Simulated scan of single mutants.
Amino acid sequence: MPDRDFHDTPSPQPHEEPGAGTDTDAERRRRRAQFLRELAEARALRDRVQPRRAKAARLRHAMRMRTFRW
């Protein structure tokens, strides 16, 4: 295999999304809302698939809320 000269090969350009950094607040809020909907859906699915773990998590959360000092 021939020895390659790395100075002649072009360096890979970082991937840039079109319009990166020019997102409006409405676009950012729309993407955030979509993300939160998908996150809630994933949590609901996990709770249905693992009901015992979900119940234990609910009980731990309730205990944390009871012992929290304002």
Results as ranks from 00 to 15, higher is better:
R69I: 04
G19W: 09
V49G: 09
D8G: 00
R30A: 09
L59I: 02
L59R: 12
R43I: 08
E38N: 08
A20I: 00
E17I: 00
W70G: 06
E16R: 11
R32V: 04
V49R: 09
D25A: 12
A40G: 05
G21H: 06
M1P: 07
H15L: 14
P10K: 01
R64Q: 15
A62W: 15
A44W: 05
A40Y: 12
A33P: 11
A33H: 05
P2L: 15
A57F: 02
T67R: 12
R53C: 02
A44C: 06
R4C: 06
R58N: 08
P51K: 10
A62E: 13
E16I: 13
A20H: 07
T22E: 01
R64F: 01
A26V: 14
R43F: 11
A42I: 02
A33G: 09
S11W: 15
Q34S: 13
E16G: 11
F35D: 10
Q13P: 02
R58A: 13
R69D: 02
D47Q: 03
A44V: 14
L36R: 09
T24A: 06
R52A: 10
R69Q: 14
G19P: 04
A33T: 03
R31I: 02
E17W: 02
D23H: 10
P12G: 07
Q34I: 03
P12N: 04
A62H: 03
H7N: 06
A62I: 09
D25Q: 12
F68Q: 08
M1N: 08
D25E: 05
L36D: 13
F6D: 11
A54G: 04
A33I: 00
Q50K: 08
L39Y: 05
L59K: 12
R53N: 13
R29M: 13
M1S: 06
P51R: 04
M63T: 03
E16Y: 07
H15C: 05
A42Y: 10
R46V: 02
R30D: 11
A54F: 03
T22M: 02
H61R: 11
R32T: 03
A33C: 01
M65S: 03
L36T: 11
R69L: 15
A56N: 04
Q50F: 15
D8P: 00
H61G: 14
